[in-house]
Design a protein around this nucleic acid. Structure first.
Lengths: 153, 153
DNA sequence: TTTGTTGCAAAACGTTTGCAGCCTC
DNA sequence: GAGGCTGCAAACGTTTTGCAACAAA
């Protein structure tokens, strides 16, 4: 059910966005996009920056600059989960999903629920034009529940 | 429909939590709770810190410390919306609601939707115990849509 | 040629931490 | 009296910014 999207396809989307907004098509920007394309789950600016070093040297400033652009053209989604750094996630070729976040260990899991998705997506507003949404369920994962039972005095 | 909760009531909840966890009942903690109680919508650590200065002088460290405690006993909820500072919100005497966030001006509006709420709350997980959730819808508010139309070349 | 973009480093930002003194318990 | 809590300021880690050099258009 999950549609496969090739790098060429998203590169096209990005190029189109850059052209439309009169931004330059620099090799750095495409290198970053390609690196992001290679990740499966969530990633952050630091992982991206350090992961690319060997292939194509870009500065951290350029990484942030490009992440900004990719958000604007909706190729990635930004999540602010922990108090620390922002997490990013591919938004192409990925089924809509929601997040389970353990408030104890911070682990993030994903799940899909058609009923929830439909309920949210069908909601319309008179004075607001929705582009995307994020749903976070906070609680305890099974591992942390078990640990708490053990350490119970 | 919205139940009114008095300061005395939440003070009681907080006191109970402090006692159970062997934390001290300091005047600073109650002063912060009272200040939070006076706010209507969202607030952040800085607003709280500066807003209290005249009434009761507390340090920023104590503000953060107390916000941590209030989260633990579920009297407040923490939101990480912008890339900047964390937002907080009262969690007592407030109906469950969801958030509309303008990606252009950053303004946050609240809305309620029974269908969405029920869909989310009725979802059960085998390996996860949900305590609360946050739903953020991102998009453009009417004001920003209008402004974009005007400045269109 | 123009000017948006880069890399670098310094600065900014909210938040956390270390520590001496204070005040609940 | 003991030790958790406070205030202060310095430290932290992520993100942003200033600026000269560079390169896409």
């Amino acid at each position: 059910m999950k549609e496969e999207v090739s790098y060429e396809e998203i590169k096209e989307i990005f190029t189109e966005y850059l052209r439309k907004h009169h931004h330059r098509k620099t090799p750095e920007r495409y290198a970053i996009l390609q690196q992001i394309y290679s990740y499966q789950g969530h990633f952050n600016a630091d992982v991206l920056f350090n992961g690319m070093k060997s292939d194509y040297r870009v500065s951290l400033a350029t990484v942030y600059n490009t992440l900004e652009l990719l958000q604007a053209c909706k190729l990635i989604i930004k999540h602010q989960l922990g108090g620390q750094f922002a997490q990013y996630e591919k938004a192409f070729g990925t089924a809509t999903h929601h997040h389970l976040i353990c408030t104890n260990c911070g682990k993030v899991k994903e799940f899909s629920d058609k009923q929830i998705r439909v309920a949210i997506q069908s909601r319309q507003f008179a004075h607001f034009q929705t582009s995307h949404y994020s749903l976070y369920l906070f609680g305890l994962c099974s591992k942390c529940i078990d640990e708490m039972k053990k350490t119970k005095s």
